[in-house]
Computed example of a mutant assay.
Amino acid sequence: MAKAKKILEKMGINPRDDWTIKEVQKVCEYYNLECAPPSGGGSHWKVSSEHLEGILTIPSNRPIKPIYIKKLVGYVSAHQDAEEDKGDG
């Protein structure tokens, strides 16, 4: 799963690349984030964390716009920080 770590690093360096929802799913799975598919005919995947409030929505249209990739990178970072804080307590 080190590949998912490299994908996240590349996303942080180049959010404008041609990222797919499959790569988003790999990153979420590696970092223990929930990545739920669209429901009810929508096109947005829902990323959530047990440690964070709020849900990040990412449209599955390809390529995924850079703003959503930047938000994902930040969300993963916040998730890791919250996970570490919970471990210290």
Score class of each variant (00 low, 15 high):
5 K>I: 14
52 L>A: 07
67 I>L: 12
76 V>M: 06
72 L>A: 08
38 P>S: 07
65 K>V: 10
41 G>M: 07
45 W>M: 03
6 K>C: 07
84 E>G: 00
54 G>P: 07
25 Q>E: 11
76 V>I: 09
10 K>R: 15
89 G>I: 12
58 I>M: 02
52 L>D: 02
50 E>A: 04
71 K>T: 01
17 D>T: 02
62 R>Q: 12
4 A>K: 01
77 S>W: 04
88 D>G: 00
45 W>I: 01
12 G>W: 11
78 A>V: 00
70 K>R: 14
25 Q>Y: 08
89 G>Y: 12
22 K>H: 09
77 S>I: 00
79 H>I: 04
48 S>M: 03
58 I>T: 03
2 A>F: 08
67 I>H: 12
14 N>P: 01
89 G>A: 11
37 P>M: 04
32 N>R: 10
78 A>F: 05
32 N>H: 11
64 I>L: 10
48 S>C: 05
43 S>K: 13
55 I>D: 00
65 K>Y: 11
61 N>W: 09
12 G>Q: 11
24 V>M: 05
26 K>L: 15
36 A>P: 00
59 P>M: 09
29 E>L: 07
45 W>H: 10
77 S>T: 09
49 S>Y: 04
46 K>V: 01
5 K>V: 15
24 V>K: 02
33 L>F: 00
60 S>F: 02
68 Y>E: 05
41 G>D: 12
55 I>P: 00
2 A>Y: 10
58 I>W: 01
12 G>V: 13
33 L>N: 01
38 P>L: 03
39 S>M: 13
86 K>Y: 12
19 W>F: 05
2 A>P: 02
54 G>H: 10
16 R>G: 14
38 P>E: 05
49 S>M: 04
17 D>N: 12
32 N>G: 02
41 G>Y: 05
48 S>H: 05
71 K>W: 04
65 K>S: 15
13 I>W: 06
83 E>G: 02
73 V>A: 07
9 E>R: 13
89 G>L: 15
69 I>N: 04
86 K>M: 06
27 V>L: 04
66 P>G: 09
81 D>W: 06
40 G>M: 07
22 K>S: 12
84 E>W: 08
33 L>R: 01
23 E>Y: 02
76 V>Y: 05
69 I>H: 04
41 G>V: 09
12 G>E: 12
4 A>S: 14
73 V>N: 04
20 T>I: 03
30 Y>M: 02
86 K>T: 08
43 S>N: 13
77 S>C: 03
89 G>C: 07
40 G>L: 07
46 K>L: 01
81 D>S: 11
37 P>D: 01
66 P>M: 07
22 K>V: 09
57 T>R: 06
85 D>H: 08
89 G>W: 11
20 T>K: 10
9 E>A: 14
31 Y>K: 00
41 G>E: 10
49 S>T: 06
76 V>N: 02
36 A>C: 09
63 P>A: 05
79 H>M: 05
11 M>Q: 07
46 K>F: 00
53 E>R: 07
70 K>V: 09
80 Q>E: 15
54 G>W: 07
12 G>M: 13
49 S>R: 04
7 I>K: 01
61 N>D: 14
63 P>Y: 06
85 D>E: 15
3 K>Q: 13
19 W>T: 04
62 R>L: 10
36 A>H: 07
73 V>F: 09
17 D>K: 11
73 V>Y: 03
20 T>V: 02
